[in-house]
Write a protein that binds this DNA or RNA. Structure first.
Lengths: 158, 158
DNA sequence: AAGAAAATCGTCCTAAAGTATGAGGGGAAG
DNA sequence: CTTCCCCTCATACTTTAGGACGATTTTCTT
């Protein structure tokens, strides 16, 4: 960041420079009025003062860490959770539902028929029927759709 | 904003100008009063330089505005499972599902049998069967459980 | 090793679900 | 007014689901 830029940028510094110039003129006026000495001396001092003031400012700006005022803005982000399904194992234990029965239940909820479930689990249709019947008793349901509904509210299936 | 106003407003600048003037007078006074050494001029210059450098540094530190850094902190908020169900009417229109059919679909998802649905909607069992059949065609399902699954993923039912 | 629980499979039967087809009434749009 | 869609209902039939037994085999626990 150059001095020129600084001066044009900062009104305060500009005013400062102008005031210094005015001061020098004042001195000259005083000089003319009262004591007459070497004019060059005051001008030189003034120039030195300006230069080193600028140098001081430059030094300060360059060498010091920039003042940073940290403003923390809290931005609320609403995250729609992908419905993190947490399996309710306690409920499964309470109802006495076995692992195999749960598997059948899951497939039933997927919309598969008993025959399809039997094929996927490599067992006979009768076995699936038995599991289904046991499930209905344990879930207190009389239809598979009802069983699915109950199982979902109990977080046994997503 | 005029210079005059700036000067009267900013005490720092005023003090600075005055100090410069005083310094010059002091130097002149010293020059008049005492005998100047050979290197008096260099000493003056050095003193002026040091003083005004310090002044410049002080000025810079005092007058620079702190940079405001806006830190955006993202606060994650997880939506509770009160997750409002938004009915996908577009999908219903696309599939050509009628109001009555949707009603039947909803009851089916609740686990009701066709007979129960018929009783609740005050129509005959055959009517429900017809609606169900039409639904299966429109939803490309062959079972009610499958229809329910599809309808749920399409946000036709919660 | 014995017992309990779980998983498997079967049969018989009934109930419910699903398919196919036809048909009548009513409302909305052309 | 006529056409189209929706809702309604019916009949006849097929398929699937579900209930009620019993039975054998694994698997785990004690």
């Amino acid at each position: 960041m150059g001095i020129k830029k600084l001066l044009t940028k900062n009104k305060v510094l500009l005013a400062y420079g102008i005031s210094l110039a005015l001061l020098l003129f004042l001195l000259r006026w005083l000089e003319l009025r009262f004591i007459i000495f070497d004019h060059a001396f005051e001008i030189y001092i003034g120039a030195i003062a300006i230069i080193f003031t600028a140098l001081g400012i430059w030094l300060a700006l360059k060498l010091t860490k920039p003042k940073i005022e940290r403003v923390v803005v809290e931005k609320e982000i609403y995250i729609e959770q992908a419905k993190a399904f947490v399996f309710n194992e306690a409920e499964m234990t309470r109802l006495g539902i076995s692992k195999r029965e749960l598997e059948v239940l899951q497939r039933m909820a997927e919309g598969l028929s008993n025959a399809e479930i039997a094929a996927r689990l490599f067992v006979s249709l009768n076995t699936i029927k038995t599991h289904a019947s046991n499930l209905f008793v344990k879930l207190d349901a009389s239809r598979r759709t009802q069983a699915i509904e109950k199982a979902k509210t109990l977080s046994l299936i997503p």
